[in-house]
Design a binder for these strands. Sequence first.
DNA 1: AACTACTTGCAATAAATTTGCAAGTAGTGT
DNA 2: ACACTACTTGCAAATTTATTGCAAGTAGTT
Lengths: 135, 135
Amino acid sequence: MAETIRDAGFRATKPRLALFSRLTKTSRPMSIQELAQELAGKVDQVTVYRMIDAFKKAGLVREVHLRGVRPKYELTDPRDDHHHIVCTECRKVEDFVGCGAEKMGKEALRQSRSFAAITGHTFDLYGLCKECITK
Amino acid sequence: MAETIRDAGFRATKPRLALFSRLTKTSRPMSIQELAQELAGKVDQVTVYRMIDAFKKAGLVREVHLRGVRPKYELTDPRDDHHHIVCTECRKVEDFVGCGAEKMGKEALRQSRSFAAITGHTFDLYGLCKECITK
DNA sequence: AACTACTTGCAATAAATTTGCAAGTAGTGT
DNA sequence: ACACTACTTGCAAATTTATTGCAAGTAGTT
């Protein structure tokens, strides 16, 4: 883990290890506030902001935008194209894999008169989980 | 236009008409800041916040989240399932239509053990426009 | 063990968003 | 046209969120 951080060009400091470690332990993207709160006492909130920003630029971390909430962050896994499905009632988040983005990218380029390449995408679903749908 | 606003349950006041009118004139989603700036003198920024919030709840306006920028807003067109393609260099935004969301929604439900229904989705593409790709 | 550039925490700023409230006005009924 | 009332607005102030400056601390190196 320290290795990963160094490879990304950073020093493997305690705060960085703490943040990175926390991110490896979550299956859901986390907000700055959640991270800062959990790391309180160990890592200053300002440092969380700075680290997330740096990790993001280095590609270690991905920013996830879901409707109606502040941005959340998760570790990047380069070979994994997963997306999120969010319950609009209870805000539960689950992952799903696969999406027709490559195909859609090609289709979009065909439609477009000013774009020349696709480099990324976001795709998230919103719905109701089995618990909330009965209410 | 005043009619649309009334139908949504609001009074057709000057500030509301100004905001709504501005939104009908843009082909790109706009941020609170952009809107407030353009309507400066006519509409207070606080009012823009409040109106956007109310319009959003009423379904007149859709919130659009694109990477790395604050939320933007555009008028909802119920029969139009368009999405955005964003140049990661110059931030240009273009629309494209159609996306495999229905199909993917079904696939996601199949994968999921806790979700029961899909009610919405986001899908946006990032890439380079013809101008920026040559740089 | 010493060195140095990168990091961190704390305090202070700045920016974004929300709230309270008196004054203004659209829509209604007269 | 006039008055009435609930909905709206603008302004100021409070909150919340994010950024910056800088002295002190520390990882990685010599």
